[in-house]
């Protein structure tokens, strides 16, 4: 697992209070990991802080799974 993927996973485990094994690449924040709309906003903010990036709202809307988050950050992190 890439460094980015493991940091993303750690944030999700912390914020959503889920087990590490549940945080698979395909896992959807809302459908699989119990996040509501506010949780998802918080996750995006945590990713921004951790990776020092700004994720515009229209891009954030497309980040629905763990894999989406990792790919976006891999492409956009400095």
């Amino acid at each position: 697992m890439s460094d980015i993927a493991s940091r993303v996973k750690a944030i999700i485990v912390d914020k959503l209070g889920v087990d590490e094994t549940e945080v698979t690449t395909e896992a959807s924040f809302t459908n699989d990991l119990g996040a509501d709309s506010l949780d998802t906003v918080e996750l995006i903010m945590e990713f921004e802080k951790e990776f020092n990036i700004a994720i515009p709202d229209d891009q954030a809307e497309n980040i629905g799974t763990v894999g989406d988050a990792v790919s976006y950050i891999e492409e956009n992190a400095k």
Partner: peptide, 9 residues
């Protein structure tokens, strides 16, 4: 402004 979405509620 990076206010937490749970700030208000």
């Amino acid at each position: 402004p990076r206010f937490n979405p749970f700030f208000i509620p």
